[in-house]
Amino acid sequence: MTLQLLPFPAADYAAWRTAQVERRRRWQFGPLWADAAAAAAQARTAVAELAPEDGLTGTYLLRVLGDHGEAGWLWLSRQDQDLLLLDADTDAPADELLTLLETHARSADARQLVLDRMVAAPATAALAAADGFAVVSQTMALDLTAEPSHAAPGVTLRPMTQRSFEAYLAAAIDEYAREIRRVDALRWDDALDRSRADYDELLPQGLATPGQVLLDVVETATGADVGALWLGLRPPSAAFVYDVWLTPPARGRGLGRAAMLAGAGWCRQRGVDVLGLSVFGHNVVARGLYESLGFGVVTEALRRPVVPAPPVTGPR
């Protein structure tokens, strides 16, 4: 099949936008928010940011044309040195679509092709399975309405004090900066600035920030503080794990699993139906832990270097 990319018909934009909101509601926000109305509101907000009613903002749509006519569409964005695929709906063969995307990326001088995909969306599944893609991050969800684990957690949770919050914040900002630096290859000062900015945005009032629950993790056997669990509440029936953090001496002893089990129990007791979280792709230990606890991947970002075109050489 010979594929081409053409401008998306303006007359079809409104219908595409309506369908995109529904795709996001069903495959991205539904699994993370549990409540249908809340998921729909989040989907409308997300689509409105990059695809408002009066036209696209910072992104662009392309129609995929095959040998026998229209073969679907691609929603793309150029971010820094990456070509980002936000979504796609096409029946084109994955290998030919990948070749087409790489050609488009080279023409845009992009160094990497990034799939920012909903895992339930069929068109990007085969692309994600292609060689050369590395997982950058994953967002996962756990259904708390299912039968809970009855394993003894080994830890208890208690509200943070201002003193324990300040100690946690200093350590967490530093560790998060190291993760940012590893993923995005930033200078240390830039990574630290971004880490501080993210914490300031999410915790503008510190420990008293509405909707944020910060808990000390206490080892049951010893009574020692061994870490922290930070949950963001998403009314009416969801929560999100922003961080599960352990002191260095407490690591490697199963206390991270215990803290997650305790956090899930804390949420169940308060009527929370789904617990979400995000994890860096290189953190295979954490990903394995969350999968073993029953978390399933909802969205993920994957990255693949764009191979430069071979040099054109003339006849000798």
Rank of each mutant, 00 (worst) to 15 (best):
S278K: 09
G271R: 10
R182G: 04
P248N: 08
L127F: 03
L214G: 12
L261Y: 01
V218T: 05
R287N: 06
T99G: 06
L85F: 03
Q81D: 15
E22L: 09
A36Y: 02
F133D: 15
L76M: 11
P311R: 15
A177E: 06
E201G: 00
P310Y: 03
H104T: 04
Q212V: 14
R268Q: 15
T57N: 14
A94F: 01
L61N: 06
E166H: 13
L76W: 03
D91E: 06
L215Q: 10
T45F: 02
W75Y: 11
R44L: 07
V241N: 08
L113S: 05
L293W: 02
V284M: 08
L61G: 10
V244G: 00
D200Y: 01
A43W: 00
R182D: 07
G263K: 11
D198F: 11
T313Q: 10
L84G: 01
V285A: 09
Q79N: 14
V47G: 13
V21G: 07
V217Q: 07
D95Q: 13
Y168H: 08
G227M: 01
L98S: 10
A108Y: 01
E300W: 09
L85P: 01
V241L: 14
Q28T: 15
L207F: 00
Q42I: 01
L32Y: 05
D189K: 15
L214N: 12
D89H: 13
A129F: 06
L101S: 10
D131T: 10
L255F: 12
G154D: 10
L192F: 08
T313G: 04
Q269M: 06
L127S: 03
A105S: 00
A126I: 01
A71C: 10
V306A: 01
A286S: 14
G30L: 07
L62H: 07
T313M: 06
A239E: 13
L277G: 09
P249Y: 04
E201P: 00
D190F: 02
T222N: 02
L261C: 07
L100T: 14
M118Q: 09
A71F: 05
A37W: 03
D193H: 09
L261M: 09
M1Y: 09
A250Y: 04
A37G: 04
L86D: 07
L302T: 12
M260V: 09
L113Y: 03
R257G: 03
H68E: 15
L231M: 08
S278H: 13
D190L: 10
A151R: 08
R234L: 13
T220N: 05
R24G: 05
T45R: 09
F29L: 06
